[in-house]
Amino acid sequence: MNNLPEDILVNILLFLPLKSLLRFKSVSKKWRSIISDPHFANFHFQSSSSLSHRLLHIVDSQVGSVDLDSSFFDRSAVFELHLPNNVPPHEIWGSCRGFVLLHDFHSSNFIMLNPFTGSYRRFPNSPKPSELCPFICGFGYDAYTDDYLVVQAANLTYDTDEFDVEFFSMKANSWTKIADRTNFPYSNGYDQTIVGTFLNGAIHWLVGRRYASVQLLIRFNLRERNFMEMPLPDGFESGFHFSCLVTLGGCLSICKINDSDKTANIWSMKEYGVKSSWTKSFVLSLAYIPNRYFIPKGLTQSGEIVGSDEATRVSSVSSQAEQEK
């Protein structure tokens, strides 16, 4: 097949599943070059008739991938990935259309990585001081401009209310400020960056309102380049319970940990942007989870909840899910 014209070879490779492409990278330098090309990855994503949903996890510098369309107990659903040698282990700060945003706390570098082909792009550093860690950050795709964006907000100093809110455009290869330093009314009640959830052309965060013990759901519209607040479920009050924002089954979902009965309660927005569509979908027993900060990461085709324990960073499955009627 190496004698085939390249355009015909590309068209053949576009019909192959991702797992086969990973094996075929070793056929020849030509095949590796084609499969590793970012443009090929984009065409393959758009032409796939049935896209798989995979969970990427990093544990002790080991990178693995779980096929959420298979049973989590099916060993073929899990396989190990290898990062390029010059890409050190980073934290995952977002994912979108098969790409992953990696962040290095030491250098404040961002890397956009295709974990299956190994191709990547390193973004220039933000103009903000590197020692200032953003309290929210997100990664998403603007279909209108065919552009990938990173959005983040950080305190300029620790003793004032000044904020830097900015986004990075991959097409422009530059950072742009999008908010006045004194006109960002949101805060982070945790000691680490809140990573946004990308869905429906927007990045979403669960945050607090400054100077008020009120939890809010906000989104950043990637086309309009602005923030908006979204409705939370009726009766949802986080209080001192740990809560997080995820996507499950293609729906924006909120998970709240209840310490008193060791459960995780999950609400899902069945119709995007419609408050009345919030539904309490699952109640998970955390009796066998060693750390109460269980974060759902995905919903398998067979209905299993895949999640992670922030303390051990080990992926796990709760088989105690009870779907609400």
Score class of each variant (00 low, 15 high):
203 I>Y: 08
46 Q>L: 14
101 L>W: 00
299 L>C: 07
299 L>T: 09
18 L>W: 03
122 R>G: 06
115 P>T: 10
181 R>Y: 14
130 S>R: 06
106 H>K: 11
234 D>G: 12
150 V>Q: 11
36 S>D: 06
134 P>C: 00
289 I>A: 04
167 F>G: 05
2 N>S: 13
55 L>C: 11
72 F>N: 02
192 Q>S: 15
89 P>I: 00
135 F>L: 08
62 Q>Y: 01
325 K>R: 13
209 R>G: 00
305 I>K: 15
281 S>W: 00
187 S>R: 11
186 Y>R: 13
238 S>Q: 08
74 D>V: 10
156 L>H: 05
102 L>M: 10
239 G>F: 03
5 P>W: 03
91 E>W: 01
167 F>I: 01
115 P>H: 11
237 E>Q: 09
320 Q>K: 13
312 T>D: 14
276 S>I: 05
301 Q>K: 09
175 W>I: 08
81 L>R: 11
95 S>Q: 04
63 V>W: 06
241 H>R: 03
225 R>W: 00
148 Y>G: 02
60 D>E: 12
187 S>Y: 05
125 N>G: 07
145 T>K: 12
257 I>K: 00
91 E>A: 05
323 Q>C: 03
46 Q>P: 01
262 K>C: 06
119 S>V: 13
211 Y>T: 04
201 G>C: 13
67 D>N: 15
198 F>Y: 15
318 S>F: 08
109 N>M: 03
225 R>E: 14
206 L>I: 03
322 E>H: 08
248 L>K: 02
131 E>N: 15
41 A>Y: 01
108 S>W: 05
280 K>D: 03
69 D>V: 00
79 F>R: 00
141 Y>Q: 01
91 E>K: 04
9 L>P: 00
320 Q>R: 05
149 L>S: 02
314 V>Y: 04
198 F>L: 12
160 T>R: 02
50 S>Y: 05
175 W>H: 08
36 S>G: 07
12 I>V: 15
285 S>D: 15
156 L>D: 03
324 E>W: 10
4 L>P: 08
206 L>C: 06
235 G>P: 09
278 W>D: 07
5 P>Q: 06
192 Q>W: 14
312 T>K: 12
123 F>M: 13
145 T>W: 03
89 P>Q: 10
19 K>Q: 10
58 I>F: 05
58 I>W: 02
52 S>P: 01
201 G>E: 14
27 V>D: 01
11 N>F: 04
252 L>I: 12
100 V>A: 07
85 N>I: 07
288 Y>L: 02
92 I>P: 04
321 A>E: 09
129 P>V: 15
59 V>Q: 14
76 S>H: 01
26 S>W: 07
286 L>E: 04
60 D>F: 04
235 G>A: 10
71 S>H: 14
14 L>D: 07
37 D>I: 03
285 S>E: 12
78 V>L: 13
112 M>T: 02
58 I>G: 00
78 V>I: 01
72 F>R: 08
219 R>S: 13
316 S>K: 14
190 Y>S: 11
24 F>A: 01
224 E>A: 07
277 S>V: 07
293 Y>Q: 15
212 A>V: 15
243 S>E: 00
227 F>W: 10
234 D>N: 11
70 S>R: 15
255 C>L: 06
142 D>T: 09
288 Y>N: 10
115 P>L: 12
325 K>C: 03
56 L>T: 07
193 T>N: 13
201 G>F: 07
226 N>H: 13
156 L>P: 02
7 D>M: 04
240 F>T: 00
